[in-house]
């Protein structure tokens, strides 16, 4: 049984088609990346999965049940726009939100205490939400998403605004939840996070799916057509228009995309000829970042 099955879903607002004939299949126990440029229809899709919106056409199944009021409790949600009741106490807000997800009062209280402890917020439980820093509020909101141990967790940009320590804390919890069988939908613009965490992705643009499937398989299909080079010295050796299609500079390193059929040895030769010192020369699959840009600009062209 799939965790989420979206079948040919279309959603219109007046004349604007926000989502068009979209199909998604998310396996249980995986981390699924929902990607797309701003305004592509990600939030609308997520809202339909959570039954905040109802599709005009098509059907959505959550763990085998049609999406509806009952399936809402199966999902935990961390929206991109964060927000809690500013004037309520942290503990009270969380107990309230847990209650709305179907937890009983006593159970909710106990779990809120555990989670506040786990996320290092126990000392703040009786403080007003307003008194918390941005990062702490974000952790509190994360608790609201996971408090009812939902089999499906939807996280929209879960790491923005968190320092590395807290980001690691949240990431470890996510992986732990997946270990325990939860399915996680991750919506983010940070491609390196997707590459590190996601098993499968769907890239949508203008409300349509333009690329979907297992992340490794997708990358493999592009082949090892990119050279990652770390070097010191002049970069004029990369000026090889007949073999290099595109160059991405990252300061100390570059990623050069090869033209089809080009030999990476040509670059190596050019570098040696100019006396550039290489510390790394690796033939890799294209980064997701490039695939994203290619797919999205393809649609624009």
């Amino acid at each position: 049984m799939e965790a989420i099955a979206v079948e040919h879903v279309t959603k219109r607002f007046d004349t604007v088609v926000a989502v068009s004939d979209l199909s998604l299949h998310v396996e249980q126990g995986t981390v699924f990346g929902l990607l797309g440029p701003n305004g592509a229809g990600k939030t609308t899709s997520l809202r339909m999965i959570m039954h905040i919106l109802v599709p005009d056409e098509g059907a959505i199944q959550i763990l085998g049940q049609p999406a509806g009021e009952q399936t809402q409790d199966l999902i935990g949600y961390l929206p991109e726009e964060r927000g809690l009741y500013a004037r309520m106490k942290v503990r009270e807000v969380l107990v309230f939100l847990a209650g709305l997800k179907g937890l009983r009062q006593a159970d909710a209280s106990a779990r809120v205490r555990e989670w506040l402890e786990r996320l290092d917020l126990a000392a703040w439980s009786e403080k007003k939400v307003n008194d918390l820093s941005k990062g702490m509020q974000q952790k509190a909101q994360f608790i609201a998403a996971v408090i009812h141990q939902p089999p499906i967790l939807i996280l929209d940009e879960p790491f923005t605004g968190l320092d590395p320590v807290n980001a690691t804390l949240i990431k470890d919890i996510m992986l732990d939840l997946r270990e325990k069988g939860s399915t996680i939908i991750l919506s983010t613009h940070r491609m390196e996070q997707v590459e590190m965490m996601c098993d499968a992705i769907c890239l949508i643009n203008h409300g349509r799916s333009v690329l979907a499937g297992d992340l490794r398989a997708i990358k493999k299909s592009y082949g090892k057509n990119t050279v990652r080079i770390e070097y010191s010295g002049d970069d004029s050796f990369l000026d090889l228009p007949e073999s290099v299609e595109k160059i991405n500079h990252f300061g100390a390193a570059v990623e050069a995309k090869l033209r089809p059929g080009a030999d990476p040895q040509e670059i190596l030769k050019a570098a040696v000829a100019r006396g550039v010192r290489l510390s790394r020369f690796e033939l890799v699959e294209p980064p997701l970042h490039d695939i994203f840009i290619e797919k999205v600009s393809e649609a624009h062209a």
Binding site: I52, Q72, D73, Y77, R82, G83, L84, Y85
Partner: peptide
């Protein structure tokens, strides 16, 4: 208005009609 400006309404809408 408060629930809208604080954006909590999105979480609420994912939990209750």
């Amino acid at each position: 208005v408060e629930e809208k400006t604080s954006h909590i309404v999105e979480v609420l809408a994912s939990s209750i009609k």
